[in-house]
């Protein structure tokens, strides 16, 4: 399956969820700030990089995991991905499009805005990391739900 985690900027919540899915960070224990910062693309993408689909890796079952920052395309994003996948002859059933924004708290929003939009990294980054750690159990639950969904699915 192709599992696409998407959020506003593709810099924090989607990266965290995808990394949990891939086992880059343990779902059993809370990671340290250093572990969070070492995740690929965490607090890195700029506005010019929004919209680019990034392949992060394959999980143990062979599902391909992607992240993307889809900005304000929230409602139509699943339809858009399904349309593009259709042109590539990838069936709808092989796609799982996961919005991670509902699990984002105010600290992640404010920290992300300060760091990515305004460029005040020294202020925004500690805040967004703190927010990520606070929301971490929610991301773990989200990923577990996704993994359970893909249990019976075919792999590619």
């Amino acid at each position: 399956m192709h599992i696409i985690y998407h959020c506003y900027g593709g810099a924090h919540s989607s990266v965290t969820a995808a990394s949990i899915h891939l086992g880059l960070i343990s779902p059993q224990k809370l990671p340290t700030a250093e572990e969070i910062m070492s995740l690929p693309f965490y607090d890195v993408p700029t506005q010019q990089e929004h919209g680019f689909l990034r392949f992060l890796g394959s999980d143990q079952k062979g599902n391909r995991i992607y992240i993307v920052g889809r900005r304000g395309l929230k409602k139509c994003f699943p339809a858009l991905v399904e349309s593009l996948a259709g042109l590539l002859e990838i069936p709808k059933e092989e796609l799982l499009i996961v919005d991670t924004v509902p699990h984002v708290n105010w600290m992640m929003m404010l920290g992300g805005y300060l760091s990515r939009r305004l460029g005040v990294v020294s202020l925004g980054r500690p805040l967004v990391i703190r927010g990520t750690l606070k929301a971490y159990p929610d991301f773990v639950n989200l990923v577990r739900g996704i993994q359970a969904k893909t249990e019976g699915a075919t792999t590619i």
Partner: peptide
């Protein structure tokens, strides 16, 4: 044809990266 309500500038970026990330060949 395709339309979105906003952030249309993301469409070419998504279109560009999509086949590469999915390891498919497509001329669009």
């Amino acid at each position: 044809v395709l339309w979105v309500k906003k952030d249309k500038e993301l469409l070419p970026r998504l279109a560009c990266s999509f086949p590469t990330a999915m390891e498919k060949e497509e001329e669009w």
